[in-house]
């Protein structure tokens, strides 16, 4: 019922508002949020995402795997060693030539250096560690630079961003650029930046990854959802990070 209503809402919105809005400088999703959500994100105690950061902090110094090493065994204090790292991610993994995000880097580290099994995408442990690592870059400008190695992936991410898909035949750009700032039911459409993720969504009642949020968008336009950590979502994440240049890392963000 709600879904049918939503579907009708999206169609009506697009029919009424065919004029495209050009984005000037990027606006973080938090600026579109209501007073309560803004206050939650701004207060480090009230922000429920900080519970995941706190758990990540514990995991950081907990040994794992057959080598009995913790993240801290090599990287020591995350406050210094991880500062600015999330702002530069996703990157190209030099060993494989593939796009790798923070989640992927943590799992690669587990396999290569800790001799531990990779953590499942969206597991509480991986979310906690990712939130903790990304949190060390909070306030730093998103700094993904285009180079020869990541250019093909940026291009592909851009294609996905502009590709109409799903039963609603909508691309990311249709909502998050052409209609950003406008209303979709009781929602103000944001510009769709990923700079606050992993983020706590009231709708989820939990902290979730950017891939979970992107999959929710695929679901929203009734498209086939790519798997967590898939090449498609990684390329899109890379493009979104490049597109968010001018914003700062907000992890853990709070969203509706």
């Amino acid at each position: 019922m709600i879904r049918r209503f939503l579907q009708a809402g999206v169609v009506a919105l697009l029919l009424m508002q065919s004029v495209a809005l050009a984005a000037t400088s990027p606006r973080s999703g938090i600026t579109y949020a209501g007073a309560d959500v803004r206050a939650l994100q701004a207060d480090d105690f009230a922000n429920p995402g900080m519970l995941w950061v706190a758990r990540g902090e514990k995991l950081w110094s907990t040994p794992a795997g057959r080598n009995n090493k913790a993240c801290a065994s090599c990287h020591q204090e995350a406050a210094s060693s991880m500062k600015g790292v999330a702002a530069r991610y996703p990157r190209i993994d030099t060993a494989t030539g593939k796009v790798i995000n923070i989640e992927g880097r943590i799992n690669t580290c587990r396999e290569r250096n800790q001799a531990a099994d990779p953590l499942q995408y969206e597991s509480e442990e991986l979310l906690a560690l990712t939130a903790y690592v990304a949190h060390q870059s909070r306030g730093m400008p998103v700094a993904v630079v285009a180079d020869a190695a990541n250019r093909p992936h940026l291009e592909r991410g851009r294609e996905i961003y502009y590709r109409r898909q799903g039963q609603m035949n909508l691309a990311c750009v249709n909502c998050h650029e052409q209609n950003a700032g406008r209303k979709l039911l009781a929602e103000t459409i944001s510009e769709g930046h990923g700079n606050a993720y992993p983020a706590y969504r009231l709708e989820w009642q939990a902290t979730g990854s950017l891939h979970r949020r992107l999959r929710a968008c695929y679901f929203g336009v009734r498209a086939v959802m790519p798997a967590f950590g898939s090449d498609e979502l990684l390329d899109l994440e890379l493009y979104l990070a490049r597109r968010a240049t001018g914003l700062t890392v907000e992890t853990p963000g709070v969203r509706r």
């Binding site: 709600i2 879904r3 939503l6 809402g9 979709l184 039911l185 009781a186 929602e187 969504r201 009231l202 709708e203 989820w204 979970r212 999959r215 929710a216 968008c217 695929y218 679901f219 929203g220 959802m225 509706r256």
Partner: peptide, 10 residues
């Protein structure tokens, strides 16, 4: 009580 227009995949 209102709700986000963007629901999750569940």
């Amino acid at each position: 009580v209102t709700e986000s227009a963007c629901l999750d995949a569940g």
